[in-house]
Design a protein around this nucleic acid. Structure first.
Lengths: 129, 129
DNA sequence: ATTCATTGATTACATCTGTAATAGTAAGTC
DNA sequence: GACTTACTATTACAGATGTAATCAATGAAT
């Protein structure tokens, strides 16, 4: 699968929220957030289809689009490559950077603690195997 | 500052390791890791200079290059935009993705726990202010 | 001083991206 | 069935990017 560009990602996000959607639904959804022209959004949809990230089915004159690439898969792949590229594969320095710049909220800390607890439970489970 | 492309980043990384370095030193350092032609590396250096991310001083016929953009600044800015773009600004889901895909090591967990402890200490300090 | 070699500067070129406009086609209307 | 619309597909075009080759200048060698 070819890389998804940043503009294309915005379109994909709309489809991740709900699918299938017609081109016009996507255009409308993006009309609020962005200032993209209808033609621009249609081009992006088309490119996503060509890249295999989005599929469509005909519904009369219009198409109904659905994501093929799932958000979790996209997020995971992008995270991997981002952390490899920028942090030599280590995740803690990224979080440390956030902490240093006061970009961490108490809620983030709570979530991270929960994750760690879950991870440790899973590890314990593993040693029982 | 214009965006740094992925290829340019690889060059910057070499300069972050050590600076200043001549173009040939950078070329040699990249000859191992990548398969880039000498001309390619020189082009990337040039573009980095034009973008203001790298400076140079003359040393006889050759130039000695140094990073202007610091690694921490780059990492922070990129992290911000990445997490905003892919995870709607929340960092925990990124870590959760790693955990779910077994990409977290015990050492990562230890580092994260340490970060959280540090953060909580800092918070406590803040409430004393 | 002339020539050679080295190094940065400029140019090249295909592909990708952002941002549309135009062309073609099928469907609904009269 | 002819016309008008409403869609999608194709084309456009400038700037960024990956990947170099060529040009120009300057210092080294003779």
């Amino acid at each position: 699968m070819k890389d998804i560009s940043q503009a294309e990602l915005e379109v994909l996000k709309i489809l991740w929220l709900q699918a299938p959607q017609s081109a016009n639904q996507v255009v409308d959804a993006l009309a609020d957030a962005s200032q993209w022209h209808e033609k621009t959004v249609k081009t992006l949809l088309n490119r996503l289809v060509n890249k295999g990230a989005v599929s469509f089915e005909k519904d009369g004159r219009a198409y109904l689009y659905s994501p093929v690439l799932q958000q979790q898969d996209y997020q995971h792949k992008e995270s991997q490559s981002f952390i490899a590229r920028v942090f030599e594969g280590r995740i803690a320095p990224l979080v440390a950077g956030f902490a240093a710049h006061k970009n961490l909220q108490a809620s983030d800390i709570d979530e991270l603690k929960q994750l760690i607890a879950d991870w440790e439970l899973a590890q314990q489970g593993k040693s029982d195997e």
